[in-house]
């Protein structure tokens, strides 16, 4: 208590209360708004997860998850996305310290790993569809393609976003708007990895068990 009194008496104007401090900086407001969007996006994913969990046994006599899922491919996809999340963090550090070369290098790594993830996922999808396990075959497959495909779509959007951001860094440099967008991209990419944790746990690892 004495300490609090001392701070108040010593520097009354350097620590105003939150209500007196005025609006937060744009950097905080933008990132917080994007954080709210990400949480709403995760709520949307939760609806798809719920649909999948309800319909996972409704295979209509068709193939089950244990027949279809390739664990080696899932492990590679998981590794790609996890390491790309790490390189995305490295890119954020490079942006913070304004190192342009490192930013490009880690952005390229993130992009390549994300594209590799997408390539393996699309290979799995096309293999399943070629073997007759199409989305219209059973409720289980509809739910599976919707849930996993929606995540894949998010990764695709993330890759496009990353490419656009690198063009902006090249043209505009590290100005405040570009830095805020890069920050939002990092949040988005890490959130996609969190969704993937639940995807490989609920869909693939629990799905291959009899």
């Amino acid at each position: 208590m004495n300490v609090a009194v001392a701070i108040e008496t010593l520097q009354p104007e350097s620590l105003p209360s939150a209500s007196e401090a005025g609006p937060a900086s744009k950097r905080v407001v933008v990132a917080y708004g994007f954080w709210i969007f990400l949480l709403s996006d995760i709520v949307m994913f939760s609806a798809l997860f719920a649909a999948y969990a309800v319909l996972v046994r409704s295979t209509a006599g068709g193939p089950t998850g244990a027949d279809l899922f390739n664990q080696a491919s899932v492990a590679i996809q998981t590794a790609c996305l996890l390491v790309s999340s790490f390189t995305c963090g490295m890119m954020s550090l490079a942006v913070d310290s304004r190192r342009r070369g490192a930013t490009y290098a880690f952005a390229v790594l993130t992009f390549v790993l994300g594209a590799a993830f997408l390539a393996f996922e699309l290979r799995d999808f096309s293999g399943m569809i070629a073997s007759g396990a199409t989305p219209q075959h059973s409720a289980f497959l509809s739910a599976y393609f919707t849930l996993v495909g929606c995540h894949g779509l998010h990764v695709t959007v993330g890759l496009v976003w990353l490419a656009v951001m690198m063009a902006q860094v090249a043209i505009m440099g590290f100005r405040a708007t570009v830095e805020r967008r890069l920050r939002c991209f990092a949040l988005f990419w890490h959130a996609l990895d969190i969704v993937w944790i639940w995807l490989f746990t609920v869909v693939f690892l629990m799905g291959v068990r009899p």
Partner: peptide, 14 residues
């Protein structure tokens, strides 16, 4: 010190 009056942006390091 003036930084502590507002919440930190999500994703920002301490």
């Amino acid at each position: 010190m003036t930084q502590t009056q507002h919440d930190r942006a999500p994703g920002d390091r301490p």
